[in-house]
Amino acid sequence: MSVRLKLTLSYTGFLMLAGAVLLAAVWLYLLDEVPDVTAFPGGVLTRLGLARHFAQAAGAVLVFLLLFGLLGGWLLAGRILAPLTSITAATRMAARGSLSHRIELPGPRDEFRELADSFDAMLAQLERHVAEQQRFAANASHELRTPLAITQTLLDVARADPNRDTGELDERLRTVNSRAIALTEALLLLSRADQRSFTREHVDLSLLAEEAAETLLPLAEKNDVTIQTSGEITPTIGSPALLLQMTTNLVHNAIVHNLPEHGAVQVDTAVHPDCVVLTVENTGDILAPQAISTLTEPFQRGTERISTDHVGVGLGLALVKSITRAHNGTLVIVPRPGGGLHVTVRLPLGRWCN
């Protein structure tokens, strides 16, 4: 049975039950109050006769309640369930791949309105995710094709000139191959973070910040960038490897996208009442606010800001965003007034038990 029919029968059954209870109450009243023989202007009426008249009237009332309940319940159920028609139509359109349709259910904010609004929000989120995945797939295909095309070109050149020195060719092939391996590993790490397939442990974010800064100190010295770290014990819960990768990516990005000379990077950790905070701030060129939103997109390297020969694989901040989201955190990137970026990562506070 359809929901409409079930509601109709439920309304009718409830109406019939209420009518039967009311008639039973009237009948009990008559039994107590009406004498055995009642005189009327046209004669007398015994209690048995009264019972027969009452039974006939009660039967007629119940038949009327049945018909009224079926008709009224069917119309009322149809009116109540009308919003489900719009929701069902939107669901079918989404199942066919159309995610741009929205229900936009009018009327008061009742349960159906909340359901429709939640469905619209889900469709909007799905549409954004699908668009991101499509862009990611296209960019990943392009990025993976580039080293393969370069390798093919180098091999074709070597075949056309057998007497060519293979030392230079070997070095260039190794470089291209290393880039392809790094890109593949970054894609696997990104997939792992998105799927949240990792073991959660107690982590001190301040130690990870110090480790990342120490590891990248040679790169900072090479690029004439100074790194300063500060902060207290910053307990959180998550994957130590992924959180270290997140911190390293932030510090690395702050180093390579900096001033040509005398650049600076500041890494701080702090504990707030409900979260822990990691901030990475660096000097650099002044950035337009509209460019900030694209920095966490995969393969967005911000080429206009690169001041070194290390261009990476274009997944640095995309990995940061994915790892932060996998740890139920938030990532905020804002441009500094004097140039560079101010990046803030907030993660849930992980209290340690002694």
Score class of each variant (00 low, 15 high):
residue 12 T to A: 12
residue 32 D to C: 00
residue 13 G to H: 03
residue 13 G to C: 02
residue 13 G to P: 03
residue 23 L to R: 06
residue 24 A to I: 13
residue 22 L to Q: 08
residue 22 L to S: 14
residue 15 L to E: 03
residue 35 P to Y: 10
residue 13 G to D: 09
residue 23 L to K: 08
residue 39 A to G: 07
residue 10 S to G: 14
residue 30 L to R: 12
residue 24 A to H: 09
residue 20 A to R: 02
residue 39 A to R: 15
residue 15 L to G: 07
residue 20 A to C: 07
residue 13 G to W: 05
residue 20 A to T: 05
residue 31 L to E: 14
residue 2 S to R: 06
residue 6 K to G: 05
residue 33 E to P: 00
residue 28 L to H: 11
residue 20 A to L: 15
residue 30 L to G: 09
residue 40 F to S: 08
residue 9 L to D: 02
residue 34 V to T: 07
residue 16 M to A: 14
residue 10 S to M: 14
residue 35 P to K: 06
residue 11 Y to T: 08
residue 23 L to W: 05
residue 5 L to W: 15
residue 34 V to R: 10
residue 36 D to Q: 15
residue 8 T to D: 01
residue 21 V to R: 01
residue 11 Y to L: 05
residue 12 T to W: 02
residue 8 T to W: 04
residue 38 T to H: 02
residue 34 V to C: 01
residue 23 L to Y: 04
residue 32 D to V: 08
residue 26 V to W: 05
residue 15 L to H: 04
residue 17 L to A: 15
residue 29 Y to K: 02
residue 12 T to F: 03
residue 41 P to K: 08
residue 21 V to I: 15
residue 5 L to T: 14
residue 29 Y to V: 05
residue 3 V to L: 15
residue 7 L to D: 02
residue 6 K to E: 12
residue 21 V to H: 00
residue 30 L to V: 10
residue 7 L to K: 02
residue 19 G to V: 07
residue 17 L to G: 09
residue 14 F to K: 05
residue 30 L to H: 11
residue 2 S to V: 13
residue 29 Y to H: 07
residue 38 T to D: 00
residue 20 A to Q: 02
residue 13 G to M: 05
residue 13 G to N: 05
residue 36 D to Y: 09
residue 4 R to M: 10
residue 11 Y to A: 07
residue 4 R to A: 14
residue 10 S to T: 12
residue 8 T to Q: 07
residue 27 W to K: 06
residue 4 R to W: 06
residue 39 A to M: 09
residue 34 V to D: 03
residue 32 D to W: 13
residue 18 A to D: 00
residue 38 T to F: 13
residue 36 D to C: 00
residue 16 M to G: 04
residue 11 Y to K: 00
residue 31 L to N: 11
residue 10 S to R: 10
residue 16 M to C: 14
residue 9 L to I: 13
residue 4 R to G: 12
residue 30 L to E: 12
residue 3 V to Q: 09
residue 3 V to P: 00
residue 35 P to F: 11
residue 25 A to I: 11
residue 25 A to P: 01
residue 27 W to L: 09
residue 9 L to F: 13
residue 29 Y to P: 00
residue 17 L to N: 01
residue 32 D to E: 12
residue 25 A to Q: 10
residue 16 M to V: 11
residue 23 L to M: 11
residue 5 L to F: 15
residue 23 L to E: 05
residue 29 Y to C: 10
residue 39 A to C: 02
residue 14 F to C: 09
residue 35 P to Q: 12
residue 41 P to M: 04
residue 35 P to E: 03
residue 5 L to K: 09
residue 22 L to I: 05
residue 10 S to P: 00
residue 28 L to S: 11
residue 37 V to C: 00
residue 6 K to H: 08
